[in-house]
């Protein structure tokens, strides 16, 4: 499969944005799933990895926005910080994926994912603390608590996303990063 065209990237981004709305609803039946799986993070990260940083950024900003509009989750109060967090995921995932070339697709994927997850968490924790808790203590506490409580979620993303990317590649819906017949 050739590299993705602009139109294809745009429509895949639209699909990822729609998944930002649909996946949390699909996970609704599983108790406590929202907190553990962070279902909205998956399409955003994948969009950044597959379509590049501008599209990842768009997906991260528009996904939670549309979800909030259509399902009321996240509520408007969390929307700004959530948008910042997810936009950071999409952006970082795309950027790192672009500049890291280890010749091994899975290694590139993991490096980009870890970078994106860390960057997104820090940015989100900081932005939330800045907006809602401009105190000397609150900020640090918020960032650390954010980080610690989110750790299981991070690990789950690290397991799930490569599985999804692998399946999409097998189904020839996204191009292989290092095609065998170069």
């Amino acid at each position: 499969m050739k590299k993705l065209s602009y139109v294809k990237k745009a429509i895949l981004t639209a699909a990822c944005i729609a998944l930002c709305v649909v996946l949390p609803m699909a996970f609704h039946a599983i108790p406590n799933a929202g907190n553990i799986y962070c279902p909205m993070h998956m399409p955003v990260l994948l969009c950044g990895l597959v379509c590049g940083w501008p599209f990842g950024l768009l997906c991260g900003a528009a996904g939670p926005l549309l979800s909030s509009l259509f399902t009321g989750m996240p509520s408007m109060a969390y929307l700004p910080s959530m948008i910042i967090e997810l936009a950071a995921y999409g952006l970082t995932a795309g950027l790192v994926m672009r500049f890291v070339h280890t010749k091994r697709a899975m290694a590139d994927l993991y490096i980009s994912l870890i970078a994106a997850l860390l960057a997104g968490r820090i940015v989100a924790g900081a932005s939330r603390a800045l907006i809602f808790a401009s105190g000397s203590y609150s900020m640090e506490a918020w960032i650390t608590s954010y980080f610690v409580t989110a750790l299981p979620g991070l690990l789950i993303q690290l397991i799930l996303l490569p599985a999804i990317a692998f399946a999409l590649e097998k189904a020839r819906l996204i191009p292989a990063r290092y095609p065998r017949t170069a």
Binding site: A10, I11, L12, A15, P43, A163, I164, A167, A171, L173
Partner: peptide, 19 residues
């Protein structure tokens, strides 16, 4: 995985057709 992977596959297939 049995839930997430097929959902992504279905979504990306639709997107592919539309594109």
């Amino acid at each position: 995985v049995p839930l997430v992977v097929p959902v992504f596959l279905a979504a990306f297939r639709r997107a592919d057709e539309l594109a």
